[in-house]
Design a protein around this nucleic acid. Structure first.
Lengths: 223, 223
DNA sequence: AACAACATGATAGTATTACTATTGTTCTAT
DNA sequence: ATAGAACAATAGTAATACTATCATGTTGTT
C-alpha cells in the first residue's frame, strides 16, 4: 500500500513492521489508547496483550520493549506532521504564512487522518504532549540517537529552522528557536491542562497559544 | 540548625524528614549521585540501600518511592534557586538587571553551596535538566499537584512572572513566558549535550544560552 | 538505674514487571 | 503435500517495588 510506504518510520525501533499485519496494527491502535489512559509507567505489554486478545510473547515479536514502542509512535507522529506541514506550505508564496501555518499545526489538536485507521492521531498528539519527552530523557539517549531514533524530530526542527532563516537569514539561533517553538507548544498545552499557574493560557485555547508562539517568534526575528 | 529551617521543602514528598538524620542525609547525597549516573529508570532503592550500607526497608521509611524522592529533590532545587534569586536581586534597583541576573542563574551550572554538604548542587542541577520533567509527566500529576508537589516550581515561575510584568505591565503572557524561559533553559542545555542538531548552542556555552534567552525575552517584551 | 521510645538493621515474603524459551497449531505459498 | 511463517499457549527466570516482622542499639526521661 502506498499509504504505508509514505511513512518510512525508522526501522530501528521495531523488530517486525507492525503496519504489515493485523496483529501489528492492533498493537499500535490499542497501545495508543492504553498509554494515553495509563501513562507509560503503568502501561505494560502484558496488559496490552490481554486487551488485544493476544500474548505477551507476540507483542515482544514486534517491539523490544515499551520504550521502543513509544519511540516508534513518536516517530510516526513527527513524520506524519512533517508530511502535513510540507503539503500545506509547499504551494504558499508567503514565507510568513508558511511559518505561521506550521506553528498552527504544531499548536493544534489534530483531526483523524482517514488514511490510517489504526492510528488515532488525536490521542497520539495527546501522548506526545504528555509523554513525548520520555523518548529522549533516558540514560540511553546517545545510543538511541546514534541509531536514528530521533531523526524525524530532528528533521522537523530542520524544516522549522529553514522557515525561520527564510524570514531572517541573519538570525543566529534558528535551530534553537525551532526546538523552542516545538517544545513550548507541548509544554504549554500540558501546563494549561494540569499546572495552570505556570501559564496564562486556558485549556484548549489553541488560538491563544498560537498567538503567543507567533508573537514570540516574530518579535525574536524582528529585533 | 538554621540552615535547614530555611528550606521548607514541601512535607508531602517525604515520610520522615531526611535532613534530620545521618541516614537521611546519606540517602539524599547518594541518590543524587546515583540518579545522575543511572537515570531514574535504572535507579532503585535496593541499589541505593546497598550503596549507603543500609537496607531497602530503611530507605522506604523516608520516601514512599523513587518518584517522591525525585519530587523532593526537585523541590529542594527550586526552593534553593528561588532563595538565591531573591537574595541576588533584592537590592538591585534596575528591573532589567533583575530579570537578566535571574535568567543567568537559571541558565548556568551551579557552584557548590557550602551550607548543604549533603547536596551536590551541580549534580542536582544536572538531574533537573535530564530528569526534571518526569516529576510532572506522570499519570498522577493532578493528584500530586493538589498535594503541593509543585509549589516551589510554581513559586519560582511567579517570581519570574513578576519581573516580566515590572518591565512590561501590559504583557499578557507573563506566566507563559516565565515557564517558557525556565523550561527552555533546561531543554536547550540537554539538547546541546545530547541532540546537538536541535540547537545552535555548544555544549557548556552558558553565555550563549543566556544571550539567546535574554534576547528572546527582551524582544517579546519590547514588541 | 530502669524503662520507654525510636531509629535502624536483618530477614523474609508477595505481587508485578520485564523479559526468554519451547512447543504446538493454523494458515499460506510453492 | 509440505515447508515456513505467524501466532497462541504455557512456563519459567530475574529484577523490581514494595510490606511485614522482629531484634538490637541508642537516646531521653524519671
Amino acid at each position: 500500500m502506498l499509504s504505508n510506504l509514505s511513512f518510512p518510520v525508522h526501522a530501528g525501533s521495531y523488530l517486525k513492521d507492525p503496519t504489515e499485519s493485523e496483529l501489528g496494527k492492533r498493537i499500535l491502535h490499542e497501545s495508543i489508547q492504553m498509554i494515553d489512559d495509563l501513562g507509560l509507567e503503568h502501561f505494560t505489554f502484558k496488559k496490552l496483550a490481554k486487551q488485544i486478545g493476544s500474548t505477551e510473547a507476540s507483542v515482544y515479536r514486534y517491539f523490544e520493549n515499551k520504550y521502543k514502542l513509544l519511540v516508534y509512535l513518536a516517530n510516526w507522529y513527527w513524520s506524519w506532521l512533517q508530511a502535513k506541514i510540507l503539503k500545506e506550505t509547499y504551494n504558499q508564496s508567503s514565507k510568513f504564512f508558511k511559518l505561521e501555518r506550521t506553528i498552527e499545526l504544531l499548536a493544534s489538536p489534530i483531526e483523524q487522518d482517514e488514511k490510517f485507521d489504526f492510528i488515532d492521531e488525536k490521542k497520539l498528539y495527546h501522548i506526545i504532549i504528555s509523554q513525548g519527552a520520555k523518548v529522549y530523557l533516558i540514560k540511553e539517549v546517545d545510543e538511541e540517537n546514534s541509531q536514528g531514533a530521533f531523526l524525524a524530530y530532528k528533521s522537523l526542527c530542520a524544516i522549522v529552522s529553514e522557515l525561520i532563516l527564510n524570514i531572517n537569514p541573519n538570525y543566529k539561533h534558528s535551530h534553537t528557536l525551532a526546538s523552542t517553538i516545538v517544545e513550548t507548544c507541548h509544554n504549554q498545552i500540558f501546563f494549561s491542562e494540569h499546572l495552570p499557574r505556570l501559564t496564562d493560557l486556558s485549556k484548549d485555547d489553541y488560538d491563544e497559544l498560537k498567538e503567543y508562539i507567533t508573537h514570540l517568534t516574530a518579535s525574536a526575528l524582528r529585533a
